[in-house]
Design a protein around this nucleic acid. Structure first.
Lengths: 234, 234, 234, 234
DNA sequence: GATGAATGAGTGTTCATTCAT
DNA sequence: GATGAATGAACACTCATTCAT
């Protein structure tokens, strides 16, 4: 009887949780496979094999291939988006906020290079109007960052003649290409310290320019709190 | 007589030239279609229709779809590569050279936005090891730029602690995202002046940073010669 | 109850067996279609339609068209090969063995004229180095038969000046053309007795020559055992 | 003027003759290519390249690919057919006539192995009703030979119980497979003496059987005339 | 829910044939 | 006549999606 109860408990717990697990496993596999072969270069079969589940099961959890990619994107992006938004909305000098954003991006890469690769290579570049409506989400960050820069101009933190949107895209462009250096093997992706140094260089160069960039203490405090004070601004 | 001359002219371009034309027409059509629907989203049929030629003719000039994309890339990239290389190898202060590179990139965009779009969205981001071995060509520019920055460090033009390769990728990342702003409609792609302003902002921000960017005279001389003097450096 | 049993039976053959059935159905359809239109003259679609399955299913069971033909060949040939080999290796006078081989061939034809037709017309004659490596299997029989004749020479059963390999090819050539007479409609393929007479004539003519051929009792015992005794040799 | 006349003469001669030459060159190339890759395995392009003429020229001389094959067949077969018919119609003992037929076949092979290969592998085996209506021509020989054997039965030269048509097909089957031994590399195709020995064995075995075959003088007189007398008849 | 066989529309590619020069 | 670019129908093969078990 106890056994039965336990089994029941186990199963009742499973019902909801085990399914969520399955879903996560498949999503994870999709990230792996997408990052290896690209969205168009892989078949559902590959994802299923990678996840260790049956072919058709993928369709139990995801309506179709596009939705799978969108889910990959959503699950990866949401997290990133939330963190970046937090940095953007923080009430710091724009330099600190830029540093925070860069920090978040590189931290995401350190934790999940594959996932970042897919976000960068697959989702980030699908042709406009493509299946994955990433434009919206991506634009959202850009817009938020634009407003941040706009606000910074009002505060007199950055020159008024700069186009805020362009500042925003440039920021993410610099970050992205910095990460792409690792993704494409131009820099050693397993060297944590190199990642940190790259992060600092990206932030400082973006802020002070190639000619005015200054070295920073290589180890930064975690991006959560009190950063603004601990990092000297401009 | 004029008629005869014309006929002669027409015939003189007959064989070889007209074929080269056809090839160019198809290549051009491929750029159009790729830029609209992406490489995977379009069929050879679409390219043929766009070019106004028969289905099979595409295969007369290109071995297969992959080679078509590669040719699109090659024909677009070569030009760009040559111009960028010229800037990189110019014997100017690094700031002037950076401005030159940015100039070339935006000029390319102004002349052929579609082509740049394809280069950026399709070729530039195909998964490593993909059919289009763009890695080589792309890496080549990065390396050349890296050396430029390395040299600039020796000359004391930029700080020694910066990683030259990272500088290079950041530069192209900034440029690319600056262009992507237009490609994705974040900025108005038909406003030539906006393009020029964006160009200047990209260059100046990259050189002097967000905080130190200064306005520039909006009209720049062509990137070929005498730029170093006419543009105040750092 | 009977119903239940039937259902059970149906289910007991479920997984593996039903798939093997499908495979066999497709293979059979391929034989039909190949025999009607030839390998090059038929499309996968035809095979699918003949088999009553969906287009893509053919590719579920066979890697491609070539493999399909090869499978047709293998499945048809293996059986025949085994039977012929048994005759070749039997410890009888060479005349008995020759009769056995002829018997096997004609029997195969009687059972499955279509299959034999495909073997003869399609597989047997594909250009050397073709997709279907039938050469190996075919050569194997020839070689085995050659050795049989060689051995017969040692035993003094046939003249020493004959080239054993040539004897072997001649034997199969005679058989094949004998069958081809039916395949091509020179003789009536539905007349079982005609088939038997032809079989005997082939064997006797091969053994004793055109000039020395003698009539044989038209009905032969099955080729398995005791033949050597029941049939007078040379 | 003389020059002109000569040129004219040259050209007037050419007009008809040079075209016939071209035609022959293409036909010859077709034989080559068919023998190498088979009818279905080669493209018109291959034939043109082999012949050293332009792509489209093939279509000036032959209506289409099928007609090309048919012409190959016709040009090769006609010759053979005529010679075989001559042998069949000769007023000799059937044994002499059989020897003559075998002789003709092997002679054809010695002169043009490639051509024979094509006749055997391609034309001889296309599915009934195929593009190449070889059936008619082939059947014609078979029928003629059948009548020969029929007549021989009336004369008492061979047993009455044999089916004349089957005798005919067997004869050609034996010959064909004998030649196939060379075509497929089972015997050395460059050894002229081996070819002669094979020829004799084929004839003698067919006539007197495996058990009754007797050696023959290896060198035979040319197959044209007076053979009947010079070759001892059974 | 889990499985993988079954389906069939879609598409790259080939190649016989035509035609303008 | 000679050339080879142009045409487009035909077909093998893929793979997302469905469905019976």
């Amino acid at each position: 009887m106890a056994e039965k109860a336990q089994t029941a408990a186990k199963k009742s717990q499973s019902r909801a949780e085990r399914e969520a697990d399955r879903r996560r496993v498949i999503l994870r596999a999709a990230v792996e496979v997408f990052s290896r072969k690209g969205y168009h270069g892989c078949r559902i079969q590959d994802v299923a094999k990678e996840a260790g589940v049956a072919y058709g099961l993928v369709y139990h959890y995801f309506k179709n291939k596009d939705e799978l990619l969108e889910s990959v994107f959503a699950s990866g992006w949401q997290n990133f988006l939330a963190r970046v938004s937090a940095e953007i909305l923080a009430d710091h000098h724009v330099a600190a906020r830029v540093r925070g954003i860069v920090h978040v991006a590189f931290e995401a890469y350190r934790r999940d290079p594959r996932g970042v690769k897919v976000l960068i290579l697959e989702v980030g570049r699908s042709p406009a109007g493509g299946a994955v409506n990433r434009g919206g989400a991506f634009s959202a960050v850009i817009l938020a960052a634009s407003e941040m820069f706009s606000e910074a101009q009002v505060r007199g933190e950055i020159p008024a003649h700069l186009h805020p949107t362009l500042c925003a895209t440039m920021l993410f462009g610099t970050i992205e290409m910095g990460l792409t250096s690792f993704v494409m093997g131009l820099l050693d992706k397993r060297d944590d310290e190199a990642i940190e140094r790259a992060r600092d260089q990206v932030a400082e160069t973006f802020l002070h320019g190639l000619t005015g960039a200054r070295p920073t203490a290589s180890v930064q405090p975690p991006p959560s709190t009190g950063r603004a004070r601990s990092r000297p601004t401009s």
